[in-house]
Design a protein around this nucleic acid. Structure first.
Lengths: 252, 252
DNA sequence: TATAGTTGTCTATATCAATAGACAAATATT
DNA sequence: AATATTTGTCTATTGATATAGACAACTATA
């Protein structure tokens, strides 16, 4: 274990508003995600981790307890603590970002579940993105992306209500944005813009993505357009940073 | 203020390992960054914020105190609390990502400061990325990007030591990766791959980016190649999520 | 079968985080 | 000048976080 975790600074911040056990849990998650531990590998003993991070053994135990609760680790009395989960999923992002095709090879099964949908007036931001009047009716889809039974994304998407009336039914049936858009004559679409940020998960994210409080989510805000440049979809997606990384496609 | 901040769930998680005051500080930062408040606009009164988030007024005061300390807000007794900082910088990422050109129009001045540099053996990951032997000598540059006097990025970059001997001197002189590479006959280069993640800032990030403990950083891991596909640079960059968002170029 | 190493549990103590209430100090408004 | 609004300060109390030490329970190994 001497070399493992060597890439990161083993530093912990006190009085930060983020408890020490959570910071340590984050570091362990990072180490696992970046491949410092193989699956089923043993973590260093609690005393060693405590010394490494300069905290009490009980503080390390709090961090481990949270990760055990989260299904990332398994502790066995007398033997050690072992890694259960695999590396992060690598979610590709580019001009032709599609949920299902992007995760092929990394997962055996994936789909998008429609959580809810309704019609609402367009905010200024959405109206600008879709090139419609502020306050015009837009259909909002709330979805969750799942891969091998685990939630990997949580998204809100907006479509012009006039042009895409009934898209929620198509979405519920097909479980695919691409397939749903095809029913409205959209055979192809491109990612016009993507803006990326990160924040702590809110209550909705926590529930939908099955995260522990305090987790970080990556946020993308995107506009999809038809090949002739007409905007059709505005969306905000949240990805759990501990389970997903975003891979920007090289050529598009 | 009824409509402002409307986009986010006003929910706070308890027993999360992240203190309530930090969660609220995050939400206020988000609201500012997403344009809910104009510069110099007044925040809602402390009592109103306390009610909105379902916490005590003193908890809100802790959040505001942290942001005042951070230079984001200014509190005036009897008047109110006011927004100082502007919206997030939007940092473009694409095939031709360049630090200086990317921020034109948003800032009046920007440059890259070389913090330190040294030669070290290539780790497995770096060797694979650069297409060299594991353990071969690589030059490591530690840099900080600054715009209008404020730090906006913190990066580590690795170059093959044989081909780019002395690049640290070029970097110190020119303050530009592009200009430094030109001295070694690299007139053009492309972003081959970019992988994105997010985590809490570590001690080094906090110091270099002038952040408060508990802040979140966006992390990009990238490989740059010459037009003929030969890898020349491997880098990991950290951006403060509260001050920078990443804008993916449409055509890359 | 000892022994060393590891996780699990318990008690105790100190500090941080959050709530609660009261009132002072400064500002804006009537 | 009087009043309402808002931030600043103080005391007190509770629960979560972190440290410290001791020992039990379990596993692997010499």
């Amino acid at each position: 274990m001497a070399g493992a975790m060597s890439g990161q600074a083993n530093s912990i911040e006190r009085r930060s508003g983020v408890s020490l056990w959570r910071q340590i849990a984050d570091k362990i998650l990072q180490a696992i995600a970046s491949g410092d531990f193989a699956e089923n590998a043993a973590l260093p003993p609690e005393m060693a981790l405590a010394e490494r991070y300069g905290v009490n053994r009980h503080t390390v135990r709090s961090a481990i307890a949270a990760l055990v609760q989260d299904g990332v680790l398994r502790a066995e009395q007398g033997r050690g603590t072992f890694v259960l989960s695999r590396k992060r999923l690598s979610y590709p992002i580019g001009a032709r970002t599609r949920f299902s095709t992007g995760l092929q090879g990394q997962t055996t099964e994936r789909h998008i579940a429609l959580l809810s949908s309704w019609t609402e007036p367009a905010t200024r931001r959405i109206a600008e993105a879709l090139g419609i009047a502020r306050g015009a009716a837009v259909i909002r889809l709330e979805t969750r992306g799942e891969a091998d039974g685990h939630p990997v994304s949580r998204a809100s998407a907006w479509f012009e209500a006039g042009r895409f009336a009934g898209i929620e039914d198509a979405m519920a049936e097909t479980g695919s944005i691409t397939a749903s858009l095809r029913r409205f004559g959209v055979d192809d679409y491109l990612r016009q813009s993507t803006v990326l940020s990160a924040r702590h998960a809110d209550a909705d994210d926590l529930a939908a993505l099955d995260l522990q409080p305090g987790a970080i989510v990556l946020v993308t805000v995107a506009i999809n357009v038809t090949p002739d440049g007409r905007p059709i979809q505005f969306s905000e997606s949240r990805f759990p940073a501990e389970r997903v990384e975003l891979k920007l496609s090289a050529s598009e």
